[in-house]
Deep mutational scan, measured.
Amino acid sequence: DYYEVLGLQRYASPEDIKKAYHKVALKWHPDKNPENKEEAERKFKEVAEAYEVLSNDEKRDIYD
């Protein structure tokens, strides 16, 4: 669930989505996790995908 990936509720505002994305993206950035790079890359891609969908009103409506 994209909301879960970003740690958000379904009623999150666009500002909340952006803030959550930056927080979680920093947490899972591969450069910040050199000891667990493969998992970090996978999680970072999930976070980016979730943000791409939830930050676009049209894609978010379809997802919801």
Rank of each mutant, 00 (worst) to 15 (best):
D1Y: 11
Y2E: 02
Y2P: 14
Y3V: 00
Y3H: 03
V5A: 14
V5P: 03
V5G: 03
L6A: 02
L6R: 02
G7H: 03
G7V: 00
L8I: 12
L8D: 08
Q9T: 12
Q9C: 10
R10W: 07
R10H: 11
R10T: 09
R10Q: 12
R10A: 13
Y11H: 11
A12D: 03
A12Q: 01
S13G: 11
S13C: 05
E15N: 03
D16S: 05
I17T: 02
I17S: 01
I17F: 00
A20C: 04
A20V: 01
A20F: 00
Y21Q: 02
Y21M: 03
Y21K: 02
H22S: 12
H22N: 14
H22Q: 09
K23M: 14
K23G: 08
K23P: 01
K23N: 12
V24K: 10
L26V: 08
L26E: 11
K27A: 07
W28R: 05
W28Q: 07
W28Y: 14
H29A: 13
H29Q: 12
H29Y: 04
P30D: 03
P30G: 07
D31V: 05
D31T: 08
K32G: 07
K32D: 05
K32F: 07
N33C: 10
P34S: 15
P34M: 12
P34A: 12
E35H: 09
N36L: 06
N36K: 15
N36T: 08
N36M: 13
K37S: 10
K37G: 09
K37N: 06
K37E: 06
E38F: 08
E39W: 09
E39N: 07
A40F: 04
E41T: 14
E41C: 08
R42I: 15
R42V: 15
F44E: 05
K45L: 11
E46R: 09
E46V: 07
E46C: 06
E46G: 07
A48K: 15
E49T: 10
E49L: 12
E49S: 08
E49M: 11
A50M: 00
A50L: 00
A50G: 00
Y51L: 02
L54P: 00
L54Q: 02
L54Y: 00
S55A: 12
S55F: 02
N56Q: 06
N56I: 05
D57W: 08
D57Q: 11
D57R: 10
D57K: 13
E58V: 08
E58F: 04
K59S: 13
K59W: 05
K59M: 10
I62D: 15
Y63W: 07
D64A: 04
